[in-house]
Structures are given as structure tokens and as C-alpha cells.
Simulated scan of single mutants.
Amino acid sequence: MTFESWIAFTAASAVLLLIPGPTILLVVSYALGQGWRTALPMAVGVALGDFTAMTLSMLGLGALLAASGAVFTALRWAGAAYLVWLGVKLWRAGGTLDAQPRTDAAPVWRMLGHAWLVTALNPKSLTFFVAFLPQFLDPRADLLPQMAVFEATFLTLAFANALGYALVASRARAVVRNERAVRAVNRVGGGLLVGAGVAAVAAGGARS
């Protein structure tokens, strides 16, 4: 794994994490209803959930990549197409977050567990990691150290992203309800994802 691959993975992960999916909507819902106290337990729960989903995905991905070089190439192309599809979908998304304030006074452990379950048990998470990671792996190098670095990087970003969303939602609620702000984030993120998908195809072609 080169430093350039790690930088590309970090940048793409940061963009993907900003996309408001089920996990982020849950984080925002708790923050809107109960304030900043939800930020840390929700961020920890999200990180643990991503750790679960990413580890399971890596175990399956490692077996697939060990089986065939053709499978690795197919996953690269599928992952690139997936990034482009996500980008187009995000670009066309609306300008609102469908997050209703949760006013039930849940204890810390329950909030943490809720975030973990929503993140870890989302089937899309497992599919996403299997399609996403091959874009940055070097099949000629040892896979385990690469996966460990990528997982640590992604989990750090996931924790920071969830914490940031929770703090912004609890302190500046008008921002997460501002259609222009949400639409701008969606379009910038969508454009970056399409670019990442195209770059992955170009890089794959250069390697072959």
C-alpha cells in the first residue's frame, strides 16, 4: 500500500461518511431531541457498528481476493460503478434531512447500542465495504496490514463524523434543517463520488 493509496482512501471515506444515511439520521434525531449529551455515546456506537460491519466484510473480502485475481478485478469495476451510482444519487437528492427529534430520555448505554445496531446490521454496509475497499488494495502486497490500516482510518473518520453531526445538530439546529446547506453538501459530495469512481476506473485501466 502506497501513501497515495492511503490518502485517496481517506479522502473518499471522508466524503462517503458525510452522506446522510440511516446512521447519520439516527445521530441527528437524538441530537435534535436531547442535545449535545448524545454526541459521545452515539459516536462510539457508530464506530463500533462500523468496526463490526467492516471486519465481517474484510473477512469475506479476503477470502474472495485469495480465490481469484479475476474476482479482484471484477470487484474493482463493480466498486467504481457503485461509487458513480452513489454520486449520481446523492447529486439528485433533496435538500432536507428526514430526521425527527427523539425526545425519549434514553440512557447512554441504550443510545450507544441503538447506534451500533443500526450501523452494524445495515446490509448496505456489508455490501459497501466489499465493493469499496478493492479500489485501494494492492493485491501484490500482504492484505492483512493494508486492511488493518484502512479499518483504523475509517473508524477514526466515522467517529469524528458522527460526533461532528451530533454537535452541529444540537448547537446549530437551523443548519441541518436548511435546505440550501443540505443540498450544497449533497451536490459537492455527489460530484466528488462520481470523480472518485471515474478515477478508480482510470487507475484500474492503467494497472492492466
Results as ranks from 00 to 15, higher is better:
F3H: 06
S5L: 10
A8G: 13
A11S: 14
S13C: 11
L16I: 05
L17N: 12
L18Q: 05
I19W: 05
P22T: 08
I24N: 10
I24P: 05
L26Y: 08
V27P: 06
V27Y: 02
V28K: 01
S29Y: 01
Y30H: 09
Y30S: 14
A31N: 05
A31V: 03
A31E: 05
G33F: 00
G33D: 10
Q34V: 10
R37C: 12
T38F: 06
T38K: 00
A39F: 05
A39K: 00
M42C: 13
M42K: 02
A43I: 02
A43L: 04
G45V: 01
G45A: 11
L48C: 13
F51R: 00
A53T: 01
M54V: 04
M54K: 01
L56S: 04
S57V: 04
M58V: 11
L59Y: 01
A63M: 11
A63D: 11
L64V: 12
A66V: 00
A67R: 02
A67M: 08
A67Q: 05
S68R: 04
G69R: 02
A70Q: 12
T73A: 15
A74S: 11
L75E: 07
W77H: 10
G79E: 09
Y82T: 08
V84H: 11
V84Y: 10
W85F: 08
L86F: 05
G87H: 05
K89E: 13
L90T: 14
R92G: 14
G94Y: 07
G95A: 04
A99H: 02
Q100G: 14
A106G: 04
V108F: 12
W109G: 15
W109I: 13
G113V: 02
A115D: 04
A115R: 01
W116P: 08
W116M: 08
W116I: 04
V118A: 04
V118P: 02
T119S: 10
K124N: 10
K124G: 12
S125E: 11
T127C: 08
F129I: 02
F129G: 09
A131D: 06
F132S: 05
L133N: 04
Q135V: 06
P139N: 08
D142E: 14
D142K: 07
L144I: 07
Q146P: 13
Q146T: 10
M147Q: 12
E151D: 13
E151S: 07
E151W: 03
L155F: 02
T156Y: 00
A158N: 06
F159R: 00
F159L: 11
N161Q: 09
A162L: 01
A166R: 00
R171K: 07
A174V: 12
V176C: 12
A181C: 07
N186T: 12
V188W: 00
G190P: 07
A196C: 10
G197C: 09
V198F: 04
A199H: 06
A200G: 07
A200M: 05
V201Q: 07
A202T: 07
A203T: 09
A203R: 05
G204V: 09
G204K: 01
A206D: 13
